[in-house]
């Protein structure tokens, strides 16, 4: 019985101790867990003396809902392009001061001034990637280069796709040669029969780790994030990545400063630190995404540059997502309806 009496005060002391660290020169970072390697943050703290409090989320949607509901106070966030656009439109982001970001010149021009932030005032590209086709070439001998190659009865129950309603509808719109960023009742009506056929063929919908089903051999073909495909390729070269010929979704994960940030100066410092080529290359080493930092790309090994999922050959048709507003609800209803009907 005595030990029980000791637990409560001990736990309370722990709780208070853990909550009381609030020194000067702190930065509250809200990002994907481990997406900014701990070594980078440690290096930054060592150089500037600024302590980084790293709070993590698992998806853009989590980030958005927490900010919209009024939670948290952050100095730096790490959304993808379309989420950054929503935040700009809701006045949740603060404009950047280019004078504090001399290393911004390292970013390749094709990653600046994209539709989510046309003037480049609010966001700095961090890493980029695409959504494309990954094929287990040991099992599949026919060429699979387009969405219509993937979604054929031959691959019934051998397909994994992202569990994301917008993505699935986008691929259907690409095969119909319709614009992917203006979604209305008419284009959805055209996409409906296409999506209806597709969902019947899919074995797994998984946004978090689509590589699992591929590695396990439960499926042979996938439409997945390029980062997942790059990890698969590193594991086994039989997993080949292709950008669909009809066109593909490109995402750019960015760094941005919320409007209510308390330590904007430190946030600028961290952004500029990450933009240094020798720091940026550390991130590329940890995560095989496309690095928009052209100065850092010069430091990559030939093997890293040869990973087709990180640096796809040729000049494929790539588009970023725009926020589609109220149509998001219609897209969600369409896919939910078709999934339940199977």
């Amino acid at each position: 019985m005595k030990s029980h009496r000791l637990i409560l005060p001990a736990l309370l002391a722990l709780a208070i101790g853990a909550g009381s660290a609030r020194a000067a020169g702190e930065l509250n970072l809200f990002g994907w867990s481990e997406y900014i390697p701990q070594s980078v943050l440690d290096g930054f703290t060592k150089e500037t003396g600024i302590k980084v409090n790293f709070e993590t989320y698992a998806s853009n949607e989590e980030l958005l809902s927490k900010l919209v509901a009024g939670g948290g106070s952050y100095d730096l966030v790490q959304p993808s392009d379309y989420a950054a656009e929503v935040m700009i439109r809701q006045n949740l982001l603060s404009p950047l001061d280019p004078r504090l970001l001399p290393n911004l010149k390292n970013i390749a021009p094709e990653f600046r001034h994209r539709p989510h932030d046309p003037a480049g005032r609010y966001t700095v590209p961090y890493m980029s990637g695409t959504v494309g086709i990954v094929v287990n070439t040991e099992k599949v001998k026919t060429p699979v280069h387009s969405y219509s190659d993937v979604f054929t009865p031959a691959f019934k129950d051998r397909i994994v796709v992202l569990n994301d309603t917008r993505e699935i509808v986008t691929w259907a719109l690409y095969t119909l040669k319709l614009p992917i960023n203006t979604i209305n009742a008419e284009s959805l009506a055209q996409a409906r029969p296409v999506v209806a056929n597709w969902v019947k063929l899919v074995k797994v919908f998984d946004s978090d780790s689509p590589k699992t089903a591929l590695l396990n051999g439960d499926v042979d073909v996938g439409v997945v994030w390029s980062g997942e495909a790059a990890i698969l390729w590193k594991e086994n070269k039989k997993f080949q990545y292709f950008i669909p010929t009809e066109g593909a979704h490109q995402f750019i994960d960015v760094l941005a400063i919320p409007a209510n940030a308390k330590n904007k100066e430190a946030a600028h410092k961290l952004i500029d630190y990450i933009l240094r080529p020798e720091v940026s290359v550390l991130i590329s080493e940890a995560f095989p995404y496309t690095n928009p930092n052209q100065a850092a790309r010069k430091l990559l090994t030939p093997e890293q540059l040869a990973n087709p999922a990180s640096y796809p050959p040729g000049s494929p048709k790539l588009e970023t997502f725009r926020d589609i507003g109220k149509a998001a609800a219609d897209v969600d209803r369409l896919v939910t309806d078709l999934k339940s009907a199977r």
């Binding site: 998806s59 949607e61 989590e62 809902s65 569990n163 994301d164 309603t165 917008r166 969902v199 899919v202 074995k203 797994v204 919908f205 998984d206 089903a213 998001a328 609800a329 897209v331 969600d332 209803r333 939910t336 999934k339 339940s340 199977r342």
Partner: peptide, 18 residues
């Protein structure tokens, strides 16, 4: 495999994706 949505998924999606 998220093939068949349940009510929990639908509610979750309204706050996240839609």
């Amino acid at each position: 495999g998220a093939r068949v949505p349940l009510i929990g998924n639908v509610i979750q999606n309204q706050f996240m994706q839609a």
